[in-house]
């Protein structure tokens, strides 16, 4: 019955080994999908390459359907899984700042690590930038503290927020993802190709 380590089925020592193995697979999948190329990643914002949209939403839909099925079958206990907490304004403002950083730098942290691994020097600089960003936030924590800890709604899910069953939400997310895939293919055909 999962999750295995929090339930004590696997001992804590496995945590580190599993961390490295999961990281290996994560890095391999991202790099093989082309996420070590900033020009490929940025394509999603200009309509010449929708790999980010397709990989990201396929992964989101597969994982949410899979986890809820495993919960239904009794293989995993949904209530024990860590739900990213909701701090409304921190999520909106933090997300907005990340959005500008994404289109300016062409990476997000995970993809930049993949690009670092294959020798992209722009990614090395980008990671250095992330560290400066973390440093700035920490040193000016007093300024951000209100935003960081404010508008806290708890570790809630969309089921709590909208008060409709998870199955309907998952169905809705899946339909939106499929529609986005369909539209993205139409858009890409109309946009001038960019070679990179």
């Amino acid at each position: 019955m999962g999750p295995l380590i929090p339930n004590g089925i696997l001992t804590d020592e496995w945590n580190i080994i599993i961390a490295v193995l999961i990281g290996l697979a994560f890095g391999f999948i991202l790099e093989a999908s082309g996420f070590s190329s900033s020009r490929k990643l940025a394509g999603v914002f200009y309509g010449y390459d929708f790999a980010v949209l397709k990989v990201f939403f396929t992964a989101a839909v597969v994982s949410v359907i899979g986890l809820y099925y495993m919960d239904y079958l009794g293989w995993i206990e949904m209530g024990m899984l860590y739900v990213h907490p909701t701090y409304v304004w921190a999520a909106i403002i933090g997300g907005a700042i990340m959005g500008v950083g994404f289109v300016a730098g062409g990476f997000c942290p995970g993809t930049s690590l993949c690009a670092v691994a294959i020798g992209k020097l722009d990614a090395w600089i980008y990671v250095f930038g992330i560290m400066i960003g973390v440093f700035v936030f920490s040193e000016a924590y007093n300024v951000f503290e209100g935003l960081y800890n404010g508008s806290f709604l708890g570790n809630i899910t969309l089921v709590d927020s909208f008060d409709i069953p998870a199955s309907w939400i998952i169905f809705g997310v899946t339909v939106i993802a499929l529609a986005a895939f369909f539209v993205s293919d139409i858009v890409r055909k109309r946009i001038k190709k960019v070679f990179y």
């Binding site: 994982s63 921190a90 950083g101 980008y126 990671v127 930038g129 560290m131 960003g133 700035v136």
Partner: peptide, 29 residues
């Protein structure tokens, strides 16, 4: 871009992987 992403990821307690993708997997608002 890196500086902005690093700053934003601290404010939102996670980046595209930790907050957005892993959050969506458990329907986190």
């Amino acid at each position: 871009g890196g500086v902005l992403f690093g700053l934003g990821a601290q404010i939102a307690r996670g980046c595209t992987s930790g907050a957005a993708l892993s959050g969506m997997a458990v329907l986190s608002t």
